[in-house]
Simulated assay, not measured.
Amino acid sequence: MKKRIKSLIASIPKTFLGLYSRLLIILMLLFCLPANSYGQQLQQPTSGEENFLFYTVIAMVFFVMLLVLIVAIYTLLILKRIIKNEKGEAEEVEETESGWDILTAKLTDAVPVEEEETVLLSHDYDGIHELDNHLPPWWKGLFYITIAFAVVYIAIYHVFETAPLQIQEYQNELLAAAEQEEERKTGDEDLINEDNVTFTDEVAVIEQGKSLYEVNCVACHRKDGGGLPGLGPNLTDEFWIHGGGVKNIYKTIQNGVPGTSMISWKTQMSPEDMRAIACYAITLFGTNPPNAREPQGEKYIPEEDTPATE
């Protein structure tokens, strides 16, 4: 029986190490290949965050496998030592102690099996005895590192406040983004926004607006601007829910209307595109398409200093 156990234990390292070597090689190959070369990502470039997440997962799996390998090797060494001790070969093991055995002994601070009586406690639980072993030095080292890290973290973020917390970082980023947006607006006098947008009947602008309208707006407002029930209002009459005129129309296109099918287009269109659509929508006034929706909102009266079509 002991010979069978010994032969089984002797065969474990070869099988175990062979399997692990193959898995480690596969992981290293995956780690070397770019993350955007898998599956459907071949067609769409992977962002930096997705690449970082992919490599982080691979690295964690690789690290865990190394830890499991170390624990397995250490367990096998202990089993071998137990078998040798049973045969009375403990002295020979001590004489031929390898560097690996010395390293594991220092890392674990484990008491040899033949010296367990020195750490044996008086407790007896149904024949099971308890040993007063020390905590492994590597574990205590990590524990001390976490304590030191916590002290430094509290001192930096909460006591001396030399570094901002997450909420403050978020607020700082918002302020920086607002300043950049303000600089961008003031630095470009020709930038179109809801305050300075104006109507134009230039053919190029109207044609651009028509093309964009037929692609993005006909699903709710129809191609002729008559509107669809439950979706988009009629754009051809003089009644407007959110105000007529190029400025109001531009504002509605830019910001959308929450709770309705009118989404915000500012992330999908440039200011020039939104202005072109607004100008084209104004040219639909008075076309009176058949089966148009009923008037909605309030009648819009253009200001005296603006074109009548606006």
Rank of each mutant, 00 (worst) to 15 (best):
V218N: 09
P45Y: 03
T306C: 09
N85A: 02
D190Y: 15
E130P: 12
L23I: 00
E86R: 12
M60Q: 04
P271G: 07
R22I: 10
A204M: 05
I9E: 05
Q166L: 11
C220M: 02
P289G: 02
C32V: 05
W100G: 08
L103H: 02
H242G: 14
M1K: 09
L142M: 12
L23R: 00
L191F: 08
N291F: 15
R293F: 02
A278V: 00
D132L: 06
N255H: 07
H158G: 12
L17M: 09
F143S: 12
T252R: 01
S11V: 10
A155E: 00
N216V: 07
K14C: 11
T260R: 05
L27K: 04
N172E: 08
P136Y: 07
I167R: 12
D188T: 12
H221C: 11
Q268Y: 05
I263M: 10
Y38S: 13
M28I: 11
E272A: 15
F63T: 14
I25F: 07
P302W: 01
T15I: 13
D124R: 01
C32D: 03
S7V: 14
A163I: 00
N291V: 12
C220S: 07
Q168W: 00
T309F: 04
L42G: 15
E214N: 03
D188M: 15
R4W: 12
L79P: 09
E115A: 14
I73F: 09
H129M: 09
A292D: 07
P136Q: 09
P233Q: 01
Q180C: 07
V159L: 08
G88R: 04
H123M: 08
R81K: 13
W139S: 13
I83T: 05
V197M: 10
P271D: 05
L23K: 00
Q168A: 00
E207T: 06
L67G: 09
T146C: 15
P295Y: 13
F31H: 11
A276K: 06
I102A: 12
L174E: 04
E173R: 04
I301L: 13
G245H: 06
G243P: 11
E116S: 14
G127Q: 03
R184L: 08
K247T: 10
A105P: 14
C279S: 06
G226C: 03
P136E: 06
L24C: 05
G259H: 04
F63D: 11
L76C: 01
L131D: 04
S7K: 14
G232H: 04
L175T: 13
Q268V: 10
L175I: 14
L235I: 14
L77D: 13
T46G: 00
N255W: 06
G232Q: 02
G244I: 01
V203P: 13
M269P: 10
S122L: 14
I253D: 07
G286E: 03
T96A: 01
I128P: 00
S7N: 15
E169A: 08
I147F: 05
A278T: 03
A219L: 06
E169N: 07
I301D: 11
E161F: 01
W265D: 05
V119R: 00
E179M: 03
S47E: 03
Y38W: 15
L191M: 09
Q43A: 12
